[in-house]
Design a protein around this nucleic acid. Structure first.
Lengths: 190, 190
DNA sequence: ACCAGCATGTTACCGGGGGTAACATGACGT
DNA sequence: ACGTCATGTTACCCCCGGTAACATGCTGGT
């Protein structure tokens, strides 16, 4: 109808766009029929494209997290010194979740998001591994230390971000500053 | 049948025990009928006691988290110096999730656990607030810094714990050591 | 002794959401 | 013109959360 030569990949993107819109609108109450309706089609087509609900959510999460991961990776390589890089990366993360809070909430702490959750975990793990590699290379940390720190740092920023999304009582830069301070030993030094 | 003078509270505990068992056995596939069956009764009774599924899971989470919170609070007050207290507290947390991994997984990263999730969030917030208070009192940190750090630290330990549960490649003490190092500025100092 | 009333329990049902089978329809190559 | 394959639909199944309506038995007041 709308377009003639839509190949599968483009269609898939369009479906994901619809899902995105519905998730942003309905939050956890999003349902397969609703998404299908939003896309102007019916349920079974969604299932042909994504297998099951898990597949759809996983694809959605993959799109979101891969974009975010790219941005974070760029930030990690952009700074002048180590502290500046950390700062930019933390800021990039917080800016991302600030920009699309509904999708973020849905992916990270939704009820239905068990499927997406797997994807998010993959993202977390990839990001943590990224950091771990960086730390190992940069400061010669052993693998255990690097892995523990990588996951820990990611969790730290994530948790602080969750809290901040819930109660945004402070501008982003300030939170970024506090977290950077924490990472760079301000707690131990106090 | 089983007992005569079971008052409501005791009954409630027994039901929670049953739920606990089923959750440990079936994981996210736990269902209300199954839990009821495990307790030797039928669905509506569960509903009379807990309102809805959310109520049951919330009660379950409350029981678990309040015990954990007590242990953590004790650890926070037990140490000799600051670093020792942090060490003990991190260890207490990791020991707890190591002891009951199924329940932990269910509460924190289950699909169905949206209801419990609220309770877990409350726990996280209480714990974060506890840390924040401690930091504010101990190092005179401002409220924003204290809150950000509180949530960040909790998230850090939680995330590292998740990872460690998934891939327990290292004894607990070692992870505790790495995390304590991270908190006390080993990253910034490297 | 008897009955009102309440707690405790059951069966049987509803509604909705995930998932699928079976059928329609239209664009193609041969 | 006709099989074939993608694309789409309707109508259904099943399971699970949640509830209504009905049984049963213990209590206490008169």
């Amino acid at each position: 109808m709308t377009l003639l030569a839509n190949d599968r990949a483009a269609r898939r993107e369009a479906l994901l766009d619809a899902a995105d819109r519905i998730v942003a609108r309905d939050g956890p109450a999003a349902t397969m029929v609703t998404i299908a309706a939003e896309a102007g089609i019916t349920k079974p087509i969604l299932y042909r494209h994504f297998g099951d609900k898990g597949g759809l959510y996983a694809a959605l999460a993959e799109r979101y997290t891969s974009a975010l991961l790219a941005r974070l990776q760029a930030a990690l390589e952009a700074g002048t010194d180590r502290r500046d890089r950390v700062r930019r990366t933390v800021d990039a993360y917080l800016a991302a979740i600030e920009g699309e809070p509904q999708v973020y909430r849905f992916l990270v702490l939704s009820d239905e998001a068990a499927a997406a959750s797997a994807q998010v975990r993959t993202f977390t793990r990839r990001l943590s591994a990224l950091l771990a590699d960086g730390m190992a290379a940069e400061l010669g940390a052993g693998p255990v230390r690097a892995a523990a720190w990588g996951h820990g740092v990611v969790g730290m920023v994530q948790a602080a971000g969750d809290w901040w999304l819930d109660t945004p009582t402070v501008p982003r830069e300030e939170l970024v500053g506090e977290l950077t301070d924490l990472l760079f030993g301000a707690y131990g030094a106090a």
